[in-house]
Design a protein around this nucleic acid. Sequence first.
RNA 1: GGGUUGGUAGCUCAAUGGUAGAGCAGCGCCCUUUUAAGGCGUUGGUUGUGGGUUCGAGUCCCACCCAACCCA
Length: 491
Amino acid sequence: MDAATDRMEEKSHNELLAIRRQKLEALRSAGIDPFGSGFETTGAPGEIRAAFAEGQKVRTAGRITAHRNMGKSHFIDLSDHSGRIQVYLNAKELAPEAMAAFDHLDIGDFLGVEGETFVTKTGEPSIKAASIRVLSKSLRPLPDKWHGVQDTEIKYRQRYLDLVSNRESLEVFQKRIAIVREIRRFLEDRGFIEVETPMMQAIPGGAAAQPFETHHNALGMDLYLRIAPELYLKRLLVGGFTKIFELNRNFRNEGISRRHNPEFTMLETYWAYADFEKMADLVEEMVCHLAEKICGGLRIEHKNAEGNVTRTIDLSRPWRRTRYEDLLRGVEPKWYDFSPEERRAWCQEHGIDVTHCQADFEVTQHVFEKLIEEKTMDPLFVTHCPKELVPLAKQNAADPRLVDVYELVINGQEISPGYSELNDPDIQRERLEHQSGGETQKLDDDFLAALEYGMPPAGGIGIGIDRLVMMLTGVESIRDVILFPHMRPRH
RNA sequence: GGGUUGGUAGCUCAAUGGUAGAGCAGCGCCCUUUUAAGGCGUUGGUUGUGGGUUCGAGUCCCACCCAACCCA
């Protein structure tokens, strides 16, 4: 039995679907195309409502999302992403054929309306329909008009239903769209230009992560979806660009969780002749700009399902900048006087599981993650990290154990790293050889050759856009900021 | 990978091991300014899948699938 037969089976067994099919045929019998065509409007439903003026002749279109039937007159809501407007339909104003056609419409159908604006007794801005046009028949019932979609599976697998019926979900995605647009505007206003570099790479570089593999038939070669654009952006610095960014998808073939999606959006920005502190200034300015422009201010409130504020993030400048080692001394003043064994013992005493940590610096990093990062809600630039943690950044001139980087923590998560980029080709080669570790990862010789031609000293930042949007919109799962998150197939 | 919770009508949710139910949506009737419209009536179910225990399973047991959360 194939899928089409299954679908016929489902139809014949479901009364709701069958009734909508009957209405579809009834429209056709009346000479009305149920799947319409072009319809000129004077504005979207939400636009007309926002800029409402009485006595205007308007044309609009949208999905019917509510129907209040008063017998000889009807009120419907027409909605789209812009919002909604109420439409009043009355036998006195509308042709008999139009009223007959309206009988075959349902919540969910797309309708075009022409009429005059007025305000009802109850003060509702409305359109008195003079004519209507069926634009598309909906053959399946929409989710509950009041509760919307609650089932997380439906929300994620059928996002269109979530967007149609859950206002809060739509608002999160509208904010995401605004954030991405504003990031581009912010960087372009400061002279950065957007570039596009390969998403399919022969050697997946710029990060330590498992790549997705694919194959190019004509060239007969394996390719990888990029895990980072970094090495190509640096080639552009070699090529003479000085202020560039790329805002697009990365792919990592790793686990899926509340904070991880296999494809995620990353902003990487490089600025020739800048250093990590200048990049920290830039990211600080940018995030504050986004918060003020899109989120209504520098205090970001996260709320639970009941609408109570569970967390407030204060983005007021200047943001704290503290050295990695000083943060650990804040947790345990004698931390850097301890031997590696004493550090492990301290962790055991304080209930921090470090059995999986191989090296001593990993023990320290684990303490940092558990006792500092996860508890830091307001912005904190962690600077001068140990070089083992960051193999692609420049070493600190005064202390070779450290690198010139920041790690920006907000909302208990790392939001953005920023480096003074390594531009010494010999040290870079040595670090990459050390990092690539044998058979699976090949060295990107072309990248190293590019560095040998000379790359200007530069500052670089990466910002995980999904996590940034989570922080700014107050949602707890990355799936709530990605329109179509990856899911296991249903069966 | 391990643990916890969940999957019941199109949607939102009920149902001590004992007749599967409500609200919304739908359908029928009434109502010409309603807005979660209202009133009266009414249709709709392979309870995620497959086994098992039992006189009897949505409920208990086993396996599997999907999801959310926690842990690694």
